[in-house]
Design a protein around this nucleic acid. Structure first.
Length: 461
RNA sequence: GCGUCGGUGGUGGAGUGGUCAAUCACAAGAGACUGUAAAUCUCUCGCCUCCGGGCUUCGAAGGUUCGAAUCCUUCCCGGCGCACCA
């Protein structure tokens, strides 16, 4: 079944999209031309990336899948790594001031990031690029020369800490020059920043809901936080200069305000304003809050197939359709079918969820693994078999079981262990499938498979 | 700079000299019921324990007291208000 370009675009602009800003449809038109191969000009999609958390979860993946679809239509995705802005602290987050992240660390983070991303996105230079915003926000004096940096300037050594030394480093580390081979690198000076700030009013910035809320609750609102959206807007401006375009910015709904500020900054600078697409937020495994690492309700795309499957199975029924929409490639027809099935009282939603889990695991680990893990899941939880590949702990002669488990971090403390035993949560499993409840918390560790609660398994050897 | 209010467990937030390992809610864990769903019910939720109890905690350090999370001193951190400056 081959969809026409128009059909694909329709899907692209509606599926999981919370809002799309593109007055007079300039972006849509350009995209259509690009997809049909009528123009050679690049279509640049900006996506802001947080450099501090390289562990991607399904919530991130929703946007990444969307980006992939744009790539498939010939667009170039540019990851904007907000290392500079992160060091300032995005007010979107929990308002904790974030630590400065070293450039080297960023590069390392990006490596792991890209490795994960490549499960979803194409990373060839034709359709992908990345750049960090310290590239234009840092000045020469922000450079921190490393020890042992050997600079030679026409036969004369240069002190790395001197301005000249820093300038050298600056030239060497700028991605615009080093990686993108730009003749002229753009940078944002204090003067330039104020030029922009002089064209944005206080009212424009504080209209943001979150700022209002903070003020109403009597919390503090710092200037740098108010400026954050502007900086993010300047990123769009910079991108336009570097990539000769910045046609669309994509992000979660929580980024809408910031992304719209990009339009403002571009307008101020007489650039064509970027379109803005905000994507629905995926809820976490408990079905209420947004999926995030700090709430520990996330499914990492690096999760082992078994964990991933289990976590999907643990979501409430009410969000099954939501997950289907945002995490799989199921088309409209199938989504409709699933919606009908979910309403059918004769069908156990669990079975639909089993399919969902398998489908999601297949995206990240392949169809074979997904099927295998589905069977293993059924075996473990329906037939109560001992799962494979569980953690093994070696026991020392005569060691108390409690000590062993605390040592291996299977339980958090001896008190914790005692409680679990008293609650009848600990069982030793026998080959035949029978279980023996552990009643003595001072028991000496003997080899075997132990089950703590419903899902913790430990093998002692 | 001045004034003022505050800093308590994973989170929010009580407690203002002994009955406080600290009400309560949320989060979390376990059991029952189940579909490793939700909802519901019960229990647990600092550490150690020979189950009698012991030990360490309330921003940090000192002090008062028989006794302090609670009072005093100093320091650190934060909110708010005022002033200075502009």
């Amino acid at each position: 079944m081959i969809m026409t370009v128009e059909e694909r675009m329709e899907n692209l602009f509606t599926r999981g999209v919370a809002s799309f800003v593109d007055p007079s449809s300039k972006f849509k038109e350009k995209l259509l031309k690009k997809a049909k191969g009528e123009i050679s000009e690049e279509v640049i999609i900006k996506f802001g990336v947080d450099p501090t958390r390289p562990d991607l979860h399904l919530g991130h993946a929703v946007v990444l899948h969307k980006l992939r679809k744009f790539q498939d239509l010939g667009c170039k995705v540019v990851f904007l790594v907000g290392d500079f802005t992160a060091s300032i602290g995005d007010p979107t987050g929990k308002s904790k001031v974030r630590p400065m992240v070293e450039q080297k660390e960023i590069e390392e983070n990006m490596e792991t990031y890209l490795r994960q991303v490549s499960k979803i996105l194409l990373t060839t230079s034709q359709v992908f690029s990345w750049i960090r915003n310290s590239d234009w926000f840092y000045g020469v004096s922000d450079m921190l020369p490393k020890e042992g940096l050997n600079l030679d300037f026409w036969g004369r050594g240069i002190n790395p800490s001197s301005f000249l030394g820093k300038a050298f480093l600056y030239e060497k580390t700028r991605m615009q020059v080093r990686d993108l081979k730009k003749q002229e690198a753009i940078g944002v000076t204090l003067r330039g920043l104020f030029w922009t700030l002089g064209r944005i009013t206080h009212a424009q910035l504080i209209e943001r809901d979150m700022f209002q809320n903070r003020l109403n609750e009597g919390n503090s609102l710092f200037i740098h936080e108010m400026l954050y959206p502007v900086l993010q807007g300047i990123d769009s401006f910079a991108l336009y200069n570097i990539y000769n375009g910045c046609d669309l910015e994509i992000g979660g709904t929580d980024q809408t305000f910031n992304m719209l500020m990009g339009r403002e900054v571009m307008k101020i600078n007489k650039q064509p304003e970027q379109a803005v697409m905000s994507i629905d937020i995926l809820v976490g495994t408990e079905g209420k809050e947004k999926m995030s690492k700090s709430l520990d309700n996330y499914i990492s795309i690096n999760d082992e197939p078994r964990d991933m499957f289990g976590k999907v199975m643990s979501i409430p029924d009410t969000v099954i359709l939501n997950y289907y929409q945002l995490c799989t490639s199921a088309d409209k027809e199938r989504l409709k079918g699933i919606e009908v099935k979910l309403k059918d009282p004769k069908i156990n939603p669990r079975d639909i969820k089993l399919d969902l889990a398998e489908e999601i695991v297949a995206i990240y680990h392949g169809a074979d693994n997904a099927l295998g893990v589905r069977e293993a899941f059924l075996a473990t939880f329906q037939k109560k078999e001992i799962p494979e590949g569980i953690e093994e702990i070696r026991t020392n002669e005569g060691e108390i079981l409690a000590d062993l488990l605390v040592r291996s971090k299977a339980v958090s403390s001896k008190s914790d262990w005692r409680r679990l035993v008293e609650e009848g949560a600990v069982k030793r499993l026998r080959e035949a499938g029978s279980e023996e409840k552990i009643v003595n918390y001072l028991e000496v560790a003997t080899p075997g498979v132990y089950k703590i609660g419903k899902r913790r398994f430990v093998k002692i050897i």
